[in-house]
């Protein structure tokens, strides 16, 4: 496929308050980690140009607020998304358990036509924190969630540290690939980058799960 125009990929980052969504995005986009970001209100927007499969794409990343009260805002930000990143904090079990509801909420509000095949990716952040504070038997719990909450779908999983810049780049590379696939799919289906998702076409993303650190 020849590059006719700038490819814009829209990525949404979701997850509980305080799991490190802003830090992940800042680490990826600006290669920096600050100890104190203010709580995100509504959603923040950042962009980064990267090369995926020899193609230059621009990631438009929406870093959303984690508090539940802001969820009704989703419609304004989720529409037209090409990939959704679900974040949790490896030291906070509740944030892990909430992944399912974040995913469901996203599918409801973004109104994507192919919910079964929409590309999600899971990121467990804060692996730099001492082992003792981490969720006990994390991988088992994570498996339970993907099996039950996510209907057995295998979404790529990354464990990252935004603070120490571990796995962040790798995760976003996969995010970009998945988003690009989704975008090209829309292109084929809808003829242009509209929000018009027509028939669902099965794509399988299992091959991308190489970054799983579990």
């Amino acid at each position: 496929m020849t590059l006719r125009k700038k490819t814009l990929l829209k990525v949404i980052i979701l997850g509980d308050s305080g799991v490190g969504k802003t830090s992940l995005m800042q680490q990826f986009v600006n290669n920096k980690f600050l100890h104190q970001y203010k709580a995100t209100i509504g959603a923040d927007f950042l962009t980064k140009e990267i090369t995926v499969d020899n193609k230059v794409v621009t990631l438009q990343i929406w870093d959303t607020a984690g508090q539940e009260r802001f969820q009704s805002l989703g419609v304004a930000f989720y529409r037209g998304a090409d990939c959704c990143v679900l974040c949790y904090d490896v030291t906070n079990e509740k944030s892990l358990n909430n992944l399912t509801s974040w995913k469901d909420e996203f599918l409801v509000q973004s109104n994507v036509a192919n919910p079964q095949d929409f590309p999600f990716i899971i990121i467990g952040n804060k692996i730099d924190i001492e082992e003792s504070r981490k969720i006990p038997s994390l991988s088992k719990k994570l498996n339970n969630i993907t099996n039950q909450g996510f209907g057995g779908l295998n979404y790529p999983v990354f464990e990252t540290s935004a603070k120490d810049s571990i796995n962040v780049e790798a995760a976003f590379e996969v995010i970009a690939k998945m988003a690009l696939q989704q975008e090209e799919l829309n292109e084929v289906n809808g003829g242009d980058v509209s929000d018009d998702y027509n028939d669902a076409i099965n794509i399988h993303l299992e091959g991308n799960g190489s970054g799983c650190a579990c």
Binding site: I41, G42, A43
Partner: peptide, 17 residues
């Protein structure tokens, strides 16, 4: 551009950000 994309915070935090 939709107004909600930037003005939400203006209202929620009274421009304190």
């Amino acid at each position: 551009i939709e107004f909600i994309q930037f003005a939400f915070r203006w209202m929620n935090c009274l421009l304190m950000r």
